[in-house]
Nucleic acid binder design. Structure first.
Lengths: 143, 143
DNA sequence: ACAATAAAAGATATTTTTGTCTTTTATTTT
DNA sequence: AAAATAAAAGACAAAAATATCTTTTATTGT
């Protein structure tokens, strides 16, 4: 469904959302531990998301990654779009380049319906909304 | 969503279903052309599906691939399961190994719902059901 | 039996994804 | 200013996915 890169990205961003309230920052090692991912790999991914302004970062002592109030409103769909592109949201299920309403593949309509639901679900899921349940151990980001 | 291999596999199987009625067989080159895929690559894939009994094949002149009446009842879900395994149907959306109802990831419930619909859709879609619309150019397997 | 055909099998190549390691740059604290 | 810290950047490595090419085996028609 999502690439490994994207899975890590989503988990990391939700983790950062949880840990970086009131101006706190989270270090890359803590993030890697918190979401059970390879340190250097998630570092690369976050560098990318940082360049693309989805996450903030500062270097040096007490530095790390953080999400400001505005970034907390980003949705999982935003992450997916940036990391995996929008083929998940708009590409043909069977990989046909010219698949469309007027030139449909065999599963175009049924698949489109489900894909739209998926899209809506990911748009609706905001980075900031999971903090509380994570805090209460009602949901998890590792293993 | 699906791997390239799986996309080709689905398209090829639907193509064979369409072309191999009344005992006819389809050659690998015709298949590759018909679904716009690399010849040798789809050959490999069909070899695999043939070993796993999802498609029939005979060598030699007038040989080729075919689907018997029984195989026409196979669903796209069967193809997906054989080619990509069942991670699409049962794996965690965020890649967590231990994700479950009691140890859910942040999107477990919402994602599960959509995945079940996807699964149901693919189970319902039988290889034999597309022939007529393909014949009438109401749907397509290439480009 | 022989030649022709077509899939099966095996070997190899390329590209993409995933993962690791080292060096550099920016920031903070002392 | 110097030392310590932590992300950024760059180079490299391993694994998996995708694709191609060649040889072998089975079958058919002559």
């Amino acid at each position: 469904m999502f690439s490994k890169t994207c899975e890590y990205a989503i988990r990391a961003m939700i983790f950062i959302a949880q840990k970086s309230r009131d101006g706190d920052k989270v270090g890359i090692k803590e993030i890697a531990k918190g979401i059970d991912s390879p340190v250097h790999f998630i570092a690369k991914i976050l560098q990318d998301l940082s360049r693309k302004q989805l996450v903030g970062s500062v270097k040096g002592p007490n530095g790390g990654f953080y999400l400001d109030k505005n970034s907390l409103k980003y949705s999982l769909a935003d992450i997916v779009r940036v990391v995996d592109g929008d083929k998940l949201f708009s590409g043909c299920g069977l990989g046909l380049k010219q698949c469309s309403e007027t030139h449909p593949c065999p599963i175009h309509h049924e698949f489109g319906k489900i894909r739209r639901e998926m899209h809506a679900m990911l748009e609706k899921a905001k980075l900031g909304e999971f903090t509380e349940k994570l805090e209460k151990n009602l949901m998890f980001l590792k293993r």
